[in-house]
Design a protein around this nucleic acid. Structure first.
Lengths: 200, 200
DNA sequence: GCCTTTCTGTATTTCAGAATCCAAAACTTG
DNA sequence: CAAGTTTTGGATTCTGAAATACAGAAAGGC
């Protein structure tokens, strides 16, 4: 009954996330966002009321898709617990490899946002999104560690909850290290070194 | 021969660093900086030509003092290599504990800056400061691991260079995890779990 | 005690970039 | 195919914050 949008909302969100990820919130202008998404300014403002709002939506979208990707690895019952964890690490290193190939050494929008306190202050939804994302990912990791202990692929070690935190910490550390130019294959070895208490 | 400054430059740099660390570069106004340092705007601009410049100087100052602190731990020959590494971890956790007590969960200006690509783009000196800081810290860590292997306190494991990267990665990960509200004592356990391949 | 230099405080300017406005276009449906 | 509604493009306005200007004050040397 009315003119339909010519752009796909989630495509815009992904383009926006890519910009925010590479340049950060403050250093991404609305013009850049328009250009990246190939959408005119009024369309953007019409669909997403403000830059802040667009950021929140982009972050949410980004966190969901990323998490879904990790979830599909960690719940793949055709693999042992340990294999799933290793595969997760592989996938993360692969992300960094791709980012590297694309020029920007930029890792993860989640870590970026987390390390930018001003952003969280800007909208309480941001903290909520990050919190929820963290909780869900930790839960998945914990379940996988437990599954690995049950199927015998993961040796005894720290409690599963603590192990989940360890994996998450290592992943964050890897994201940071990637920014300093460490090559993906070295990142991979470091990740496995760090997980020795879990994976042996 | 002329009126001397009433403020101490390094005190201003420390106050500025504290603000930048807690609020981030973009979300710290020059007014906040003046207030935090208790210096009037013109004095600030007179001493440090711009907000950007002040940031660079503050970062440099911050990195140097932080590094010196770590260096004094890592070169304390009254301790074994392993003891020095453990003490470094203790010191970092302690920093997070203090930050936590002060309200802001904020960790490290270095990691903040590293994870904010727009900042590095703003001034090439920033990348230089971070690079140099990283190189020096990795060197110290590597030396300490070697010393620990020589004195028998650090068991065989990954090559010293890789070990240094691991420690650094864990520290970064801890800085990030601290932002999510993990308590200092849990952070401590995670750090030691992650260093198992080095410290046993 | 005067003179030079640098500092201080406030008011003002400037500017980048976010957000709004409006007229025209595009599409759907009855 | 006409009506009604939403989208679109471009120009414009608005805003917040960085930076500057300038007058007056404070210190030190001579």
């Amino acid at each position: 009954m009315a003119r339909p949008r010519t752009f796909d909302e989630s495509v815009v969100l992904e383009a926006a996330a890519a910009q925010f990820r590479v340049h950060g919130f403050a250093d991404t202008s609305t013009e850049q966002l328009c250009e990246a998404a190939d959408v005119r300014r009024s369309s953007l403002y019409n669909a997403f009321t403000s830059k802040d709002e667009l950021f929140v939506r982009a972050l949410d979208h980004y966190a969901s898709t990323m998490r879904a990707r990790q979830e599909s690895i960690l719940t793949d019952t055709s693999l042992s617990g340990a294999e799933r964890l290793r595969k997760l690490i592989d996938a993360i290193i692969e992300e960094e490899r791709v980012a590297r190939a694309e020029g920007h050494a930029a890792g993860c929008m989640g870590v970026h946002t987390l390390m930018n306190p001003g952003l969280r202050a800007r909208d309480e939804r941001i903290a909520r999104i990050l919190d929820r994302d963290l909780r869900e990912r930790l839960g998945l990791l914990e379940d996988t560690i437990r599954a690995g202990r049950a199927d015998g692929s993961v040796p005894d070690g720290p409690p599963a909850g603590e192990g989940a935190l360890l994996i998450n910490t290592i992943i964050s550390g890897i994201r940071v290290a990637a920014q300093t130019g460490v090559t993906p294959d070295i990142l991979h070895r470091i990740a496995l070194d760090g997980l020795r208490s879990l994976l042996g």
